[in-house]
Each structure stands twice: as structure tokens, then as C-alpha cells.
Write a protein that binds this DNA or RNA. Structure first.
Lengths: 118, 118
DNA sequence: AGCATTCATCGATTATCGTCGATTATCGAT
DNA sequence: ATCGATAATCGACGATAATCGATGAATGCT
């Protein structure tokens, strides 16, 4: 797949762009890397104190990250637990390879918990 | 390096974000993938006709891609030849791994033709 | 029922970005 | 010196986006 050498189709390009766009912000990168380092689910409050950004701003960014599937949410009581999506952790670098024209190293498909995404 | 588990430092986050930002646009993705597929240098005119975007727009995007080092320029006569930066092709997916908290697979440093970048 | 906690959402503000047409700069050829 | 081709730059416009404070909704506890 994708071995021709025209430009990337517009739809594909927009799909990939939406993934990169989700990481195209320093604050958002700090959030995903925080969730990726501690692999355990974290509440919004923990993420706020652990990142030094305002609560509403954190909530906003987490929503964006969840929409592209980089993070997953689970409600427990009044708290929301966010955690990194391990599937994206594995698959996203492969997407980077595709864009860069690298031969995809036998990628075992890219399913994740229901969401569309890398 | 980077084995602690605080969030990514702000400076690192901004550096990585600038790379992702360069790819956070469908048109720009089409340009890099076009240059990555044909690995041979292309003039702006060829890129324009090969991508169906206005000349000034293409020029604008190529500048952005060159600033982060994804593409390299060379002047020959009145033409400008743009080509993909092979170093970025190899290193960028590794950067994606770093952000995602993956163990960097023995990356052999990330120098490229003088420019700062992935 | 009432209150406290946790977080999403709203509204507003400010900054950044993508695109286009027109203009300008650079170079080669005549 | 002039002309033609190539591509960068400029100025403008509309659209997105990031941040913040305040408000609102859901839940658990007493």
C-alpha cells in the first residue's frame, strides 16, 4: 500500500496532519509525555499540578488528545482518569515513517480502543 | 538521558513541537511526502504542478519545512532545487518514540546538513 | 436535602496560521 | 541594457487556536 509515488492523497494527508496537529503544541506534548512516562492513569488534578498549567487549559488539551486517540479516559466516581493509549505509542512512530517515505517495518495494524487514530 | 519521569522540559517540548508543527498541515505533508517519494531534487515549479497548490503558497510552505530542516535547498541558475533531508527521514520517527515514552532504539545521533532539527 | 469536590464547558481575548494576488528580486540569455 | 523565467516576499483577509476566569454539571458524602 502506498508504493506509488504521487503525493500523499489529500484525505490521507489530512488524517496524518490531524495526528501531528495534536502534538504540535508544547503544552500538549508535555501532557502526553507525562502520561507516557508514568504509564498509570492520572486524574486531571494530578496532571494539573504535575504540569503547572491552568485546569481549564489542561482539560481543553486532554480533550483534543482524546479526540485523536492519543489518550483514553475512564470515569471513576467524580474523577476522570486519563492514560496514554499504548496502541498509539507503538503505531505513531510508524505513521511518521509512512509520511517520511520509509518502508513501514511490518506494522501489525493499528487498532485501538474503538477510537480512530494513529 | 530523559529517563526521569517528570513531564518533558518546556524547552524540549517546544523543540519537538516545532517539528510536529511543521507537519501539522495537510498541504505541507503532501509536499514532504512528494519529496520523500521522488528522492531526487525538484524545482519549485515541478512541486507546484505536482501538488496543485499556488506558487506563493508552495514557496511559503517550503520555507517552513526548510526552517525545521525537513527539506534542503540548493540554487542552480534561476531555479531552486528542494530535496528531502535524509537524516530527518531516519531520525524523525525516533523523535516520535521519545515523545511517546518509547525506549529510543539506539539512535546514532541526529546531525544533518548544518540545520537544527529532527 | 445540602454541601464539597472534580472536571467539562462557555465566553472573551489575543495570537498564530493558511491562502491568495500582486509585487519584487535574482539570474540567464539575447 | 533589456527581456523572460523562476521563485521569494509583501499585504491582506478569514479562519483556527491557546489561554484564562467564571460558570455549570455530575458525583459522593453527611
Amino acid at each position: 500500500m502506498n508504493a506509488d509515488n504521487g503525493p500523499l492523497a489529500r484525505d490521507e494527508a489530512e488524517e496524518y496532519a490531524s495526528w501531528f496537529k495534536a502534538l504540535a503544541d508544547a503544552t500538549r506534548l508535555q501532557l502526553v509525555s507525562l502520561l507516557a512516562r508514568r504509564r498509570v492513569p492520572m486524574t486531571v488534578g494530578e496532571i494539573v499540578t504535575g504540569s503547572g498549567v491552568g485546569q481549564s487549559t489542561v482539560s481543553h488539551h486532554l480533550k483534543i488528545l482524546a479526540e485523536v486517540g492519543f489518550v483514553l479516559v475512564e470515569r471513576r466516581g467524580t474523577a476522570r482518569f486519563y492514560r496514554i493509549n499504548e496502541t498509539c505509542v507503538r503505531c505513531f512512530p510508524t505513521a511518521a515513517d509512512v509520511v517520511m517515505g520509509n518502508p513501514a517495518p511490518a506494522a501489525p495494524a493499528c487498532d485501538q480502543g474503538g477510537r480512530r487514530g494513529p
